[in-house]
């Protein structure tokens, strides 16, 4: 690494030429990326302070949208439902995907088959899946409640038709769908752990549980961190699953932030107000990610 500058100077390609060549590679992608991602993100911070709706242009109103948010009952419902989803979806998916990865990371026949199966829901369209699950969850005649009754649950839950059970139903489907994806990440992490460490632990007489605690978990830490960050962002922005499965209902029992933004912006055409809610979502994701990174850095130090 240290000899690099010398080597480069010897071949002496001027910096400006490298810059031009480098940018020429980036441009086809960067133009699209800048126009469709960077510009909207900047605009968001302008719209959020305006009273833009279907009746007029963007008029600067300062913090009015945010003051209105504070008193908007639906907003607080959406926020707390999002937190509800997040608090359950993260640990459940983390545990399920880790257990699956541990099960698959061994000398078993048909491991490739099981891996394929577990990953399949993740690449299946959400519309079809939500529809199937809605039918499976159907309270009167659905197979799930049929199975529950067969094992002795006399009054199985109403799932997506009940305000208390709709969120658990959505969380279950979300976990079921995503665990295969995170399992793949964990598998990659597991295989990066040097086998010598397990050997050494065995020689020292460590039990399977001790090996898991002392070798596997620490070795997986970078993967676990990455998975947690991705899961957190994924949970806070949960949208399409809920939109097609429950559409926020019954009542507002599964209304989440993304859907609230969608309703205000695309159904009620209150662009300014919806942008203010978007900023809340943006800031929440940013803060949580930054917090996770700083905790991770402190732990690694």
């Amino acid at each position: 690494m240290t000899s690099m500058p010398v080597a480069r100077r010897r071949r002496s390609r001027p910096v400006w030429r490298n810059t031009v060549v480098g940018w020429s590679f980036l441009l086809p992608n960067f133009i699209g990326f800048a126009v469709l991602t960077l510009v909207p993100v900047v605009l968001l911070f302008y719209y959020a302070f305006t009273s833009w709706d279907v009746f007029g242009g963007a008029e600067w109103t300062g913090l009015a949208n945010f003051r209105q948010l504070l008193h908007d009952h639906s907003f607080w419902t959406a926020l707390s439902n999002t937190v509800y989803y997040t608090l359950f979806h993260i640990p459940l998916t983390l545990a399920a995907s880790l257990v699956l990865a541990l099960l698959l990371n061994r000398k078993l026949r048909a491991v490739a088959f099981f891996r394929t199966v577990a990953f399949f829901p993740y690449i299946t369209s959400i519309v079809a899946l939500a529809q199937v699950w809605n039918m499976l969850f159907s309270p009167g005649y659905g197979p799930i409640n049929e199975i529950l009754r067969a094992v002795g649950v006399h009054h199985p839950p109403g799932w997506t038709t009940s305000a208390d059970w709709s969120m658990p139903a959505v969380i279950l489907v979300g976990t079921w769908r995503e665990m295969g994806y995170y399992m793949l990440l964990f598998l990659a992490g597991l295989q990066a752990i040097p086998t010598q460490l397990y050997e050494a632990a065995r020689v020292d007489g460590a039990t399977a549980w001790q090996r898991f605690r002392a070798v596997t978990l620490p070795g997986l830490r970078p993967t676990t961190f990455f998975v947690t960050v991705m899961l957190t962002i994924g949970s806070f922005k949960v949208f399409d699953l809920i939109l097609v499965m429950t559409n926020g209902g019954p009542g507002q029992s599964t209304l989440v932030l993304s859907q609230f933004i969608y309703q205000k912006g695309f159904v009620e055409n209150q662009f300014g107000y919806a942008s203010a809610v978007s900023i809340v979502l943006f800031v929440v994701c940013l803060l949580v990610t930054v917090a996770q990174f700083s905790v991770n850095r402190r732990r690694n130090a």
């Binding site: 990326f33 126009v35 469709l36 991602t37 510009v39 909207p40 993100v41 605009l43 968001l44 719209y47 960050v229 962002i233 806070f236 922005k237 949208f239 932030l257 993304s258 933004i261 969608y262 912006g265 695309f266 662009f271 919806a274 942008s275 978007s278 900023i279 979502l281 943006f282 994701c285 940013l286 990610t289």
Partner: peptide, 16 residues
């Protein structure tokens, strides 16, 4: 941008 949910800028993007 991986940490920025699309849902948070879909409105300005739509207007654009």
């Amino acid at each position: 941008t991986i940490a920025v949910p699309w849902q948070s800028y879909m409105i300005p993007q739509f207007i654009l």
